[in-house]
Design a protein around this nucleic acid. Structure first.
Lengths: 144, 144
DNA sequence: TCTATTCTAAACTGAATTACTCAACTATTA
DNA sequence: TAATAGTTGAGTAATTCAGTTTAGAATAGA
């Protein structure tokens, strides 16, 4: 039940990009340095965030990355789903990527005890992460 | 953020053992058949549950497994921690297996935005799973 | 236009984990 | 003592994780 390093690094990178929002572009080596993230690995992550429509980038001498949307319109749930896939602890309770169980004996019965509990767990997780934006998140970081 | 098959099979096996609680021993092949679990894999799981003190077993002709504690004293949280380790989404917010972050720039600052959110997520998960017992769980299954 | 800089894209790698499987045991009972 | 049933440990194929490498394409400035 762990989030991957990718998700963690993505959130840390977005912390930097949020602090920089509305100002100059931020380069990957700067993000890597400030957050202690291996730069080649960070590249992959920034690319994924870009392809998912969260970041814009420019190449060349004064290139870099920037947030494409206001920080209060991006939730941690969105970010984590990009890097780690669905939040649900088992496939059959995912709302964004539902998968039918193949071998569960309760499938036919209409109600499955595991599904009931895990549905609750999924909702509890999503409730937090889908309502927590990058602005809330970066606010925590800069408050002090 | 998924639970393993081990955890899922463990919960399904415990559903059978809970229904059988206070009655005769239940054999692994019977559990395997009813829940469609590969028997050799199930063995491993039952053994882990036994070593963790949840099950008793007897060998020989009329052997089998049984719950060693009343179903309302075993929570899903306990079971999942046995098979999958801590519930926390990152090591630095685990209460049962805390691990200090090595490279996080917020370590020194006394407050980390990731830790704050993920702590909330951990608590939300634990709140559900540590308060849901096998009795609640099996009640769901037999109610209909 | 040349060149240094920066992002892009994909393949690659070593280590760990997952989900099983197998084989050889030991204990129990009829 | 034979059959049954749990115990233990090792093995394995497939996948995932975390990170590296390499080659390329866009951009700005000289």
């Amino acid at each position: 039940m762990k989030f991957s390093k990718k998700s963690e690094y993505a959130l840390r990178a977005l912390l930097e990009l949020t602090a920089q929002y509305g100002r100059a572009l931020l380069q990957r080596h700067e993000i890597a340095k400030r957050q202690h993230i291996p730069i080649e690995f960070l590249e992959q992550i920034l690319l994924a965030l870009k392809n998912a429509g969260l970041l814009a980038s420019r190449r060349g001498v004064s290139g870099g990355y920037s947030l494409i949307k206001p920080p209060d319109e991006i939730t941690l749930g969105q970010v984590i789903r990009i890097l780690d896939g669905p939040l649900a602890p088992i496939g059959c309770v995912s709302k964004t990527a539902y998968q039918k169980c193949s071998d569960c004996p309760y499938v036919k019965k209409g109600s499955c005890p595991i599904q009931d509990v895990m549905g609750g767990v999924r909702n509890a997780i999503a409730e937090i992460l889908d309502n927590y934006t990058l602005r809330d998140f970066a606010g925590q970081a800069t408050r002090q």
